[in-house]
């Protein structure tokens, strides 16, 4: 079977800096993959390149949504990438502060809705049904994620952990086949991290999703991931299952430094 995401020779150059250098990553359907590496290794840049926020200098990103044929993401705008079925969350929470929790999720439904100006002004039959369905779907997603008690709360007033979960809910609302989570556990306490762990596994098993996450919490990464990709200084230095990566000398060097260097 073809991988659902195939990234080939991805290179991103900012001025004189090679933020990503020939990175190759593939993700299989139903996989939870992790992208790890020290700070500044280029993990978020990788996300930004895939989701169309940056245009990569060279390289190809090909997706094969389950049951569909392969297509390239080259030159697509972020909203078009989302429409193709890649949804992401952000490292520093980027919720829509001035909207309620439900409306935040409804924004995710936006790209699956059609109503235009005319429908909005005259409340056509189609628009009303679509709106009703969007409200219903969004509420359902909130229930799944466990945020339904906040439904009409302003997003900015939510506790930190709930804001992180709301970002996932919002991403889910776009009907993705691949979820890209940028440090979903950042700033969470052990209890919240545990809940997140369960949520991610639940998402894979029940929502038929594949997940790629960037994370610094090694306990979470090791327990969750089927496959781990390690980058350092924009270069991919290792990949494999948690056991392999843990014992890889390159990875240990990247995280802990070389003994001879320290002397």
């Amino acid at each position: 079977m073809e991988p659902i995401l195939n990234v080939e020779n991805l290179t991103m150059i900012f001025g004189g800096l090679k933020a990503l250098n020939n990175v190759n990553i593939t993700i299989e359907q139903g996989q939870i993959a992790a992208l790890i590496g020290p700070n500044g290794a280029g993990k978020t840049t990788f996300f930004n390149c895939i989701t169309g926020i940056y245009e990569p200098t060279t390289g190809d990103v090909t997706i094969t949504p389950p049951g569909k044929s392969s297509q390239s993401l080259k030159g697509l705008k972020p909203n078009q990438v989302t429409q193709k079925g890649l949804a992401r969350t952000f490292q520093n929470i980027r919720l829509f502060q001035g909207m309620t929790v439900l409306e935040n999720v409804m924004i995710g439904r936006h790209c699956r809705m059609k109503a235009g100006i005319f429908g909005a002004l005259f409340h056509t039959h189609a628009q009303k049904n679509e709106e009703k369905k969007a409200i219903y779907d969004s509420y359902e997603i909130l229930e799944k994620i466990g945020l339904e008690q906040y439904v009409n709360e302003m997003a900015k007033n939510l506790p930190y952990g709930a804001q992180r979960r709301l970002e996932i809910a919002r991403a889910l609302a776009t009907d993705p086949f691949l979820l890209l989570l940028d440090e979903p556990a950042a700033g969470m306490n052990p209890q919240e991290t545990k809940e997140l762990d369960d949520l991610i596994i639940w998402l894979r098993d029940n929502e038929n999703l594949s997940i790629l996450l960037i994370e610094h919490d090694m306990k979470l990464v090791m327990s969750l991931s089927d496959k781990i990709h390690v980058v350092d200084y924009g270069k991919k230095i290792a990949q494999g299952n948690p056991e392999e990566v843990k014992s890889n000398p390159e990875v240990i060097k990247a995280y802990l430094g070389d003994e001879s260097e320290d002397a």
Binding site: I53, P78, T82, C111, R170, A171, T174
Partner: peptide, 9 residues
């Protein structure tokens, strides 16, 4: 940025 990432043109 988040708005675009959520599929809004």
């Amino acid at each position: 940025i988040a708005c675009q990432a959520m599929g809004i043109s």
